[in-house]
């Protein structure tokens, strides 16, 4: 039985991954902000086969409380097999008014908080000698594009941090997986027009669960064709990226 903690558990991708983990009888601690949404997900996962589900209500942008939260998770689960870090926000860069304050907030939620959780969970995994850390980054972190470079910058931080950790622990039982989804149809992207490149949250959630089952470490693009797209985008001349 896998023991799993999910930070930002009610995000669509986390929820989809949790449902797949639940099918196999996992035990969960779900961390999130909205008590009702957490209760709904707890009930859902139990019906789908979870062995046990607990929730913790927390504002993850209060970074000072994160070490205690991680200790609580470890004490409750005993061993933590998988930690999925999935919280984050997607600001509309076009309508940002107070750039300075909003950038600080964004950095706190999307970058500082998940980084601290990565560091804390890695510390716990080292004491266990094993564990799988999965962090939700984004293809947006691969290149600064005019439309969303603030968001992209926060994801770039997570990608680099996770990639470095993965390389450092390569060959050991501590795995770090950086997930870079392309366009995903979720609550966060509800206002966007959808086309052929869009994946569903359950596709991405399923990809995460099977990557964990295979013990994958390093960077994963999902759906896979995004690896190719981003290879091109990373190497495209600036005059093209300017229009993206």
């Amino acid at each position: 039985m896998q023991r799993i903690v999910i930070f930002g558990a009610t995000s669509d991708i986390a929820e989809a991954a949790a449902r797949d983990f639940a099918k196999a009888g996992a035990s969960f601690i779900l961390v999130g902000r909205n008590p009702r949404a957490l209760d709904d997900l707890c009930a859902d996962l139990k019906v789908r086969g979870a062995a046990s589900v607990e929730s913790r209500i927390a504002d993850l942008s209060h970074v000072a409380s994160l070490p205690a939260l991680c200790n609580d998770v470890q004490n409750t689960l005993g061993i933590v097999d998988v930690a999925l870090i999935a919280h984050g926000v997607l600001p509309d860069q076009q309508v940002t008014n107070d750039l300075c304050m909003e950038t600080l907030d964004l950095l706190q939620v999307n970058a500082v908080s998940p980084s601290l959780l990565m560091i804390e969970m890695l510390r716990i995994f080292k004491t266990q000698g094993r564990g799988h850390l999965v962090v939700l980054s984004s293809v947006a972190g691969d290149r600064g594009r005019p439309s969303n470079y603030f968001y992209g910058a926060t994801k770039a931080l997570l990608s680099v941090l996770g990639e470095g950790m993965a390389l450092q622990h390569a060959g050991s039982d501590i795995k770090i997986l950086v997930v870079k989804p392309g366009f995903v149809d979720t609550k966060m992207t509800a206002a966007f027009k959808k086309g052929a490149l869009w994946a569903s949250a359950s596709d991405v959630g399923g990809a995460i669960v099977s990557a964990v089952a295979k013990g994958r470490s390093g960077v994963m693009y999902t759906p896979r064709f995004w690896a190719l797209i981003m290879l091109i985008v990373r190497n495209a001349p600036s005059f093209i990226v300017r229009r993206m």
Partner: peptide, 8 residues
């Protein structure tokens, strides 16, 4: 999006 189980 209302796709949760509630009890079984």
């Amino acid at each position: 999006a209302l796709d949760h189980f509630i009890a079984f």
